[in-house]
């Protein structure tokens, strides 16, 4: 049943996503051209410079809009499928709640990761097209630095950071899902507004906590690293990344359980 659910979820999420990805790709090329113009030594009229600057801002805005819209589509799918009238069909399908939720989670995380990948590629294209040799030179320097200074452990870092990216995407999706579900549990009217309010409220608290942790955690970490050898410092960073991964995974687990509880016991369709 999960496969069937995923097929419908993917069909919905990616129906228009391709168009957005294609448009943003074109926009990234335009943005690259603008950077090239702004970076060129040629004596161009001010109008061209201003125009290129504005176009560059617009290009960046388009990429951000693509990212936001992709996320909004994921959340709309979740809300409509579960809490609008469609919920009467969704929750009467001969499927476990965990399977319904798994489908929404997998499709949502896939959409977000695909968007992150496309935007990453587009930023790369923009910079490569805009800065040309300067950018490739910078990448070569960066690669040398990683290879020489960090060494073999950089592969471990890359794997850990990739794991953090995946688990953080899952966290972002689950966090929004929990807010939408909670809003639908506590009210039958103005559910969308309530969900947005809950999301911003909870996100603000979370951001505050995250910043406090970063400030004090980083200070504390660096103060304890005095006197450690290079290899020991590398090992500490590997452990920090692993701890971050485990912590986010734990939060995901908590939110999944909360989500299951609300859908199983507190479902409150309009």
């Amino acid at each position: 049943m999960l496969k069937k659910l995923l097929r419908y979820d993917f069909a919905f999420l990616f129906r228009y996503w391709w168009i957005g990805a294609f448009i943003s790709l074109l926009v990234s090329l335009v943005g690259g051209g603008c950077i090239y113009v702004l970076n060129s030594k040629a004596d161009l009229p001010d109008v061209v410079d201003v125009g290129a600057g504005l176009m560059l801002v617009l290009s960046v805005f388009c990429l951000v809009a693509f990212a936001i819209l992709s996320m909004i589509i994921v959340f709309i799918r979740y809300y409509k499928n579960f809490f609008s009238d469609e919920g009467y069909l969704t929750f009467t399908l001969p499927v476990k709640t965990s399977t319904l939720l798994a489908s929404k989670l997998i499709s949502g995380v896939s959409a977000i990761l695909a968007t992150a990948f496309v935007i990453g590629a587009e930023v790369f294209i923009m910079l490569a097209a805009g800065f040309g040799d300067e950018f490739t030179g910078f990448l070569e320097e960066l690669w040398k630095l990683i290879a020489n200074e960090v060494g073999a452990i950089s592969i471990l870092y890359a794997v850990e950071l990739l794991m953090i990216l995946v688990v953080y995407s899952a966290f972002s999706v689950l966090f929004a899902y929990v807010c939408i579900t909670l809003a639908s549990v506590i009210t039958r009217k103005a559910r969308v507004i309530t969900a947005i309010g809950l999301y911003y409220g909870a996100n603000s608290v979370l951001n505050f906590g995250r910043q406090m942790f970063l400030i004090f955690g980083t200070q504390s970490l660096f103060s304890r690293m005095d006197g450690l050898s290079g290899d020991e410092i590398k090992a500490v960073f590997a452990l920090v990344f692993l701890a971050a991964f485990l912590f986010i995974a734990l939060l995901c687990g908590f939110m999944y359980v909360l989500q299951r509880y609300m859908l199983d016991k507190k479902l409150n369709l309009a």
């Binding site: 009238d85 399908l93 001969p94 476990k96």
Partner: peptide, 16 residues
Amino acid sequence: EKSKALISYLPERPYF
């Protein structure tokens, strides 16, 4: 899950 496979439910509102 099993009982849902045996029930055909028509709600009072369109759900598509």
